[in-house]
Design a protein around this nucleic acid. Sequence first.
DNA 1: GCGCTAGGTTATCGGCGTTCACTCAGCCGA
DNA 2: TCGGCTGAGTGAACGCCGATAACCTAGCGC
Lengths: 210, 210
Amino acid sequence: MSPARRPRARRGDGDLLRAEILDAAGRLLAEKGDENAVSIRMIADAVGVTPPSIYLHFPDKDTLIEAVCEQRFAEFDEALEKAAASAPDPIAALRARGEAYVAFGLDHPEHYRVIFMTRHERTMELGDLTPDGATAGARAFGHLVEAVAGAVEAGASVTPDPLATSIALWASFHGLVSLLVSEPGFPWPPVPSLVEAVLNLQIEGLRPRT
Amino acid sequence: MSPARRPRARRGDGDLLRAEILDAAGRLLAEKGDENAVSIRMIADAVGVTPPSIYLHFPDKDTLIEAVCEQRFAEFDEALEKAAASAPDPIAALRARGEAYVAFGLDHPEHYRVIFMTRHERTMELGDLTPDGATAGARAFGHLVEAVAGAVEAGASVTPDPLATSIALWASFHGLVSLLVSEPGFPWPPVPSLVEAVLNLQIEGLRPRT
DNA sequence: GCGCTAGGTTATCGGCGTTCACTCAGCCGA
DNA sequence: TCGGCTGAGTGAACGCCGATAACCTAGCGC
């Protein structure tokens, strides 16, 4: 099963293995669909290296998985930014974000699970959650708050606290994705109609009353 | 570490062990806070029995954990029913359900995780989801649809599809609980204010416009 | 051409879920 | 009373896991 053994890296190129490990781990995670079904040994095997080598680049398995998902999280943030960028107005941009959010979660269910559905001990402070924060998660949330603030400024007539509104939006879309991902056997109505329902409840409520 | 060995059960009393296993597994799950941190060996040890004995009563670990959480799910359903019963009108009952939902999730985070946040393959059909369904999950969802239908009948002025509304409500509260449980290090505003925000967005929207 | 060190390997540990072969207590029919 | 059946549980082992400690070696700088 093990493919050809990977040739030893050149003197300064130790980090090449790190990148290959991240890549293999990401592929295996998506393929197996379960964090516990991906073992250090499998990853090492896929890269063509022995298991202890992994520990030269990551202190433990959790950190490795976390690193994989931090990468995906950055892509997630980019996807949402891109979706919002082409919207005609701030409230449409929020809708586009919601749609992109759900699409990402359903496209990468196992990465979504690690990012948003497994317990993380790491603490954050409000001041970290800015569009140029240190982690992809902080940036993504910072972008959301920014987008909500834009909508409020554009006349959205709801509680003008962008933080609270951001959390409510996040919770709604996360709840939807999380349930869809966890309970595939539930008799769900078509996903687009669910997304539309949440969008309407959460976002149309923000649109200025005419 | 192992306490006294459990005396062998009498002839017809094999099911006593089953109950003791369920009980010990539930306690350990709540205590360790992580499904993977509870092992068959630990459960067997807590009961005073050897690991293979577990397999006389449950085919595998997943089924055992599932059985534990099915019990908790039934308590969950009861808690929501009880909360709704003392509300003065159908919309207040929905609010009470939401508050009880969140309270249960935060009181039993690891059971909540297993019930609602790990992937389940079991399929259901719409017809199963009634207040007298076979599983606690089916009953709980049936009760929710019933409660929403009651609110609609009482004049709640939103989309009159109880199923879609039920899913949206479920997703909202689940999203909130799920994030609170998964990201304890996030700078959350006080939980009651979050609950209130979701309640207002989701349920006050249902109250008849005067 | 020699030594140092980055970049690995080999061997091993303790724990896991699970299975197989086995033992033993106690009730049942003769 | 007693032989045997069977329900209830044990002991030992398998193959996997994450992780660690000790060792090796290719190749660059001098």
